[in-house]
């Protein structure tokens, strides 16, 4: 076989390999087995099994649940999926976007007393980017005030 023919055979082989990889990823539902996070309902349903294991909990910061805490203390709030909610003890400095109602993913463990303890608090952002309305402006100072109150 000429090198010309070999190259074209390699081309067909490589293209097929790439197409097969994409088809497998798209159609096999491989991602359905990759559980990125549990919802509060899923976590509470598996309660006994989940205690002590490191899991990811995803949901919204329940409106009205964010407590004011002393400097140095963990953040306290609840994460909800609209049906169930879990009390969180977060030993992490939140990003500036953190607020009630926002989506979060929390990696930690469920304690026997029902509190979910974490050192890794992640805030989710959706794909919307809007200009602030009149008088509305986010910043880190503002968040610190909400969390700890006027010092």
């Amino acid at each position: 076989m000429t090198s010309h023919g070999k190259r074209r055979a390699a081309l067909i082989g490589a293209l097929s390999a790439a197409a097969i990889v994409i088809a497998i990823m798209a159609l096999s539902g491989i991602g359905d087995n990759l559980v990125y996070s549990w919802s509060p309902s899923e976590l509470l349903a598996a309660r006994q099994k989940a205690v002590g294991a490191t899991v990811r909990l995803g949901g919204q910061v329940e409106v009205g649940s964010l407590e004011r805490v002393q400097p140095g203390e963990p953040l306290r709030f609840r994460v909800t999926d609209g049906k169930e909610s879990v009390a969180i003890l977060a030993n992490a400095v939140p990003p500036a976007m953190f607020r009630e109602g926002i989506g979060v993913v929390i990696e930690g463990t469920l304690r026997k007393d029902g509190h979910f303890e974490t050192q890794r608090l992640m805030v989710k952002h959706n794909n919307e980017y809007q200009a602030p309305e009149e008088g509305e402006m986010v910043n880190a100072k503002e968040l610190e005030r909400t969390l700890e109150g006027e010092v």
Binding site: V69, P71, G72, E73, P74, L75, A90, N91, A92, V93, P94, P95, A96, N139, A140, L143, E144, L147, E148
Partner: peptide
């Protein structure tokens, strides 16, 4: 809030 600094945007 636990000790630490909230990351500045700018």
């Amino acid at each position: 809030m636990p000790d630490g600094v909230i990351v500045d945007g700018w």
